[in-house]
């Protein structure tokens, strides 16, 4: 039992982090406003092997486990990497060209009764779209979606199209594939949120050491310290659940997979939302400006929370599991 990354896993995370720092720094995020997609940067992610990470080696992938994927997505979240990265990774091995990043795959979360409205992110950049419900996986060509681009999106890095009526897609997977995909998607979303929650904690504490009021850094004030401490606690609790969920996906006998997936998503949803809000508060008026990227992080957190079930749905599922 060892719930810390191995040396190899740490190296992988460090490599992804280095790529993100070089290619997805804050200025690049500003440049990507409105589209959230850039073919060159997408190619860098593909070159790093992000999309093929968990695909079996026989199918041309890296054959890594969910534990490694979790670390990769944590780093992507830390840099707030935009684009349909999660869906393309999930589509690797199912949609031709996804593993190499040559086919850009967007997605629709159809879990929980497929309640609308159906919004597809980054559709302009996509070649194909997959949809996942609890019992099936569907596929469409991107231009078959007959979707309407919406003038504005909440997250400036996540443009959305509205699919008024879902066209019938090709069923490319049944309940087994769908179940695994939903679990993977839930945990990787949570991993991204953990990275996001950590990034805003770092951003807020850097600012708290730098910004002075009343003749001292605002981080010397206890009211600020305690906000920051709570950010650390939320991020660490969520990270623990996400690591355990990744390890359990790789070895379902070693734990209660359903329970730890619920725990991971609940805690990561909480950490992402509350930490991003706290980051804005610690920045004061600057935090409320468009220029300071804190709002990007909070808006992404809001986009991610409902995906694959938010706090409410997962908490209800855990509650149901408690009674006989």
């Amino acid at each position: 039992m060892d719930l810390l990354p191995t040396d190899d896993q740490s190296e992988l995370a460090a490599a992804v982090r280095a790529l993100c720092e070089a290619r997805f720094d804050v200025d690049s995020l500003r440049e990507l406003e409105g589209s959230g997609f850039d073919a060159g940067r997408w190619g860098d992610l593909a070159g790093m092997g992000v999309f093929a990470a968990t695909l079996e080696e026989s199918a041309g992938g890296a054959g890594l486990g969910a534990a490694e994927a979790v670390l990769v997505f944590e780093e992507l979240g830390r840099a707030l990497v935009p684009g349909p990265v999660l869906w393309t990774q999930l589509a690797a091995g199912i949609v031709d060209g996804a593993a190499a990043g040559e086919t850009v795959v967007g997605g629709l979360d159809l879990t929980g009764g497929a309640a609308g409205p159906h919004l597809v992110a980054h559709l302009d950049a996509c070649d194909a779209v997959i949809g996942v419900a609890e019992d099936r996986v569907l596929r469409w060509d991107a231009d078959a979606m007959r979707a309407v681009p919406l003038a504005d999106s909440l997250d400036p890095l996540t443009p959305v199209h509205h699919v008024e009526e879902l066209p019938p897609g090709d069923e490319i997977g049944g309940a087994e594939a769908a179940g695994r995909m939903v679990a993977d998607a839930t945990v990787l979303t949570a991993a991204f949120e953990v990275g996001l929650a950590t990034a805003v904690t770092d951003m807020a504490s850097t600012y708290a050491l730098d910004r002075e009021q009343f003749g001292k850094p605002i981080g010397a004030f206890q009211a600020v310290k305690h906000i920051l401490a709570d950010m650390v606690v939320r991020a660490e609790v969520a990270r623990s659940a996400v690591y355990a969920a990744g390890a359990t996906l790789d070895d379902p006998e070693a734990g209660d997979l359903d329970r730890i997936v619920h725990a991971a998503k609940i805690c990561a949803d909480l950490a992402a939302d509350k930490n991003a809000r706290a980051c804005i508060q610690v920045h004061g008026g600057m935090g409320y400006t468009w220029e300071v990227p804190a709002h990007y992080f909070l808006k992404r957190a809001w986009v991610l929370e409902p995906l694959f079930g938010g706090i409410a749905e997962h908490a209800d599922a855990v509650a149901a599991s408690l009674v006989s």
Partner: peptide
């Protein structure tokens, strides 16, 4: 109320994972 109890149980599972991380750290 049901939801609050479910959430608490989930957060406890997460803390159990944190214990395991701390133990892993101590072991190293």
């Amino acid at each position: 109320l049901r939801r609050d109890i479910g959430r608490l149980a989930a957060e406890l599972d997460a803390l159990w994972a944190l214990v395991k991380r701390n133990v892993s750290e101590a072991a190293r």
